[in-house]
Design a protein around this nucleic acid. Structure first.
Lengths: 165, 165
DNA sequence: CTGACTGCAAAGGGTTTGCAGTGCT
DNA sequence: AGCACTGCAAACCCTTTGCAGTCAG
């Protein structure tokens, strides 16, 4: 394994420990799938994870990717953006953070903010349920898309798939 | 039409004006579908909207509901929670507001908060794109689900469908 | 009246499942 | 070696599309 940032190493260790403790089998596929999500910064969906993993592990099947991702969610090694299951986008960053999302292409990046961490929950929430976390989503248009819009004069109304870096 | 709160009336008028101006045809189905979303408070998905509308308009077909909802999104008469298209949940509340979401059943309700309206956007966003809006999502467990969890001692791991009021 | 809209049915695309073979512990 | 896991293919949704009849303007 080539050099990786300390944080990613830590995550991979946590992943391995979690599997050992749970009695589940730590297969090559599972490791590669988690690793792919953990190292990515763009919150890929199932299809994207599949394609990327396949570059290194040409034999993985799409359904293994599905089964593994749902498993990793159950183990709380991953979370999804928005509602769980179906067309979800994944992230391995389990620490408190927030998101910037491009309305045109869906590009999503993590944000950190002192202020966002200290929001006062409105009173009305008391009548709805108990609070686990609070997440801010900043929505807008990424630079790449705003260039496009200017050039094409909003000719294409279609949403592109997310542009990767 | 029976009595409806002023706000809903206003929304329905806006809806009708929007159609007249756009040259699109204001059909019974379109009116009923918009009305269903506008009066609901739980951010229903396509299937749910279809079932509810069908109670009053037994002949509507599912594909008309799809076509109408996408049209209403284009007209900016509706928005979706989370990413657009596919398995979306809809809302007709176009004013700035926030959400409480139950992680167990998906129950979603609107929140209003002075503080949430005045968040300072982190600097890093400048490198990502231009900002259109900022929305806070408070995640937790609704009262109904927390009762259930206590009673059943987390026997069921399945996510229920959202409970309606 | 006429073109836009609806309903139907069939196609399309993403996700899940059953099963036989494989491989982790 | 045993049993969980994988890969394959078929099944199973949910969503979209083509077409003929219908209806709002």
């Amino acid at each position: 394994m080539k050099f990786e940032p300390e944080a990613l190493q830590k995550q991979m260790n946590h992943f391995q420990n979690r599997f050992r403790r749970s009695g589940l089998k730590l297969t090559y596929q599972r490791l590669e799938i988690f690793h792919e999500v953990a190292k990515s910064v763009d919150h890929p969906d199932v299809e994207t994870i599949f394609k990327r993993v396949r570059e290194r592990v040409p034999t993985v099947s799409l359904d293994t990717v599905y089964r593994t991702l749902w498993l990793l969610l159950d183990l709380e090694l991953l979370t999804t953006l928005g509602p769980p299951r179906e067309r979800a986008r994944f992230e391995a960053n389990m620490s408190s953070h927030h998101h910037f999302v491009c309305t045109k292409c869906g590009m999503t990046r993590d944000l950190y903010s002192e202020e966002f961490e200290q929001l006062k929950i409105p009173n009305e929430v008391k009548y709805l349920g108990s609070v686990e976390k609070t997440q801010v989503q900043v929505t807008g248009v990424c630079w790449r898309c705003s260039k496009k819009v200017n050039n094409l004069a909003k000719k294409t109304k279609e949403l592109d798939h997310e542009q990767r870096e």
